[in-house]
Nucleic acid binder design. Structure first.
Lengths: 217, 217
DNA sequence: CGGGCGCGTGAATCACCATTCACTCGTTGC
DNA sequence: GCAACGAGTGAATGGTGATTCACGCGCCCG
């Protein structure tokens, strides 16, 4: 590698950074945050431990980037799903279903990034993720509330509660793991249904909304 | 102290054990699980670090006892509240409200014991707590389901989701902290209401049930 | 009362990881 | 070709916190 950064080298460096982040993600998926250790990440990425520090000033920064990357992806998916829906209530349903479906697919990673402990600095970031998620849902809840589609309630309480219900009910360690696609689909629908009811949509109407949701890949 | 354990000494030892557990609990309340370190616990209990090991084979065992003590208390409270209610649906409501109210009062402790990271062995115990809680709610949900008080649903999914919603909505770091008793009462009622709706009780009926609940001290 | 059992002690030890740094070596610009 | 730059290395370092252990002392037993 060069001493005046060549186009070629820049690409190589960026690639390596992605490799490192990928290794960290893979380890988180396999063994949770506890498995994301600088030495293991380096080994997995095929480099020396010290090299990690050429790319990230500290392990905390590495994990921060991992978490914010995941958060961005998930939030974007929720937004897209919601925006494709015709009205505020179906947007809410679509957002919930989309998050539920994706979270279930990526259980380990979402759990690691959302609930597992690292250190105080990272906790802030994890919290940010949950909060952005809650904020996104809160926005949708307010919109539905404004359209009189939901009974009067404090969205500031409902939104975090829904996030908790979905995470705990679907990706948390207590959640039953569906062993095939059909079972997963049922679980996602059940969780979405429960969330909509929690917000005050009556069972029958909620079932209709859920049935209309297009679940992501 | 003696070499054939006198009545007196047994008492002294038991007292000391309680002191240690009390110190651990106090630290958890003040600074979360991270603050529960053998050295700090010892200092707080007014003994040397080594002494802790005369009472608990390892820090993990100490924390295990702390968690299971808290879990037992909370579960018992839920059971009592539920059993005092006239029918299955109001029993469910009473159990939820009781848990919500107590959890809110003891936010820091419940959060620490329920969600904060320690190590893999302790995680099992934390999980046990959540599971017993979910199991207790699940039982009540099934009873209500059997009486046709709730729409058809999989209690194995609903129960953990409710636990998640209550914890995240009330005690988690995103939950707004009520600054007086009245606000706390409102928050507990809102969370209970949301949980009942999640299970399929329609808003108006749920409000009635919540209004009837006697909140614990 | 005196012998001895263990409790209590806390400094030392151990283990685990993140982080550093003196050095090697591939690549580039001339 | 070759001088120089900086990426890559990985053993050594450092910090944090649990756990141990050899010793001193208070209390029970006869």
């Amino acid at each position: 590698m060069p001493y005046r950064r060549t186009e070629n080298v820049v690409r190589r460096l960026a690639l390596r950074e992605d490799t490192i982040l990928g290794a960290a993600e893979a380890l988180a998926i396999e063994g949770g945050m506890a498995a994301v250790q600088v030495a293991s990440v380096a080994e997995r990425a095929g480099i020396a431990a010290g090299t990690v520090y050429r790319y990230f000033p500290s392990k905390t920064d590495l994990i921060a980037e991992l978490i914010s990357g995941v958060a961005e992806r998930e939030l974007e998916a929720v937004r897209l799903a919601a925006e494709a829906a015709p009205g505020p209530l179906s947007a809410l349903a679509a957002g919930l279903a989309s998050f539920a479906a994706r979270a279930l697919q990526r259980r380990r990673l979402i759990w690691a990034v959302t609930a597992e402990p690292v250190d105080a600095d990272v906790d802030t970031l994890r919290l940010d993720f949950r909060q952005s998620l809650a904020a996104e849902f809160e926005r949708r809840i307010r919109a539905a509330l404004a359209g009189r589609h939901l009974p009067d309630q404090d969205a500031r309480v409902s939104a975090p509660a829904i996030v908790g219900a979905l995470l705990e009910g679907l990706v948390g360690p207590m959640a039953p793991s569906p062993d095939n696609d059909a079972a997963a689909r049922v679980a996602v629908q059940a969780a979405t249904l429960l969330s909509l009811r929690a917000l005050g949509v009556v069972d029958a109407r909620a079932r209709g909304l859920v049935a209309q949701c297009v679940l992501p890949v």
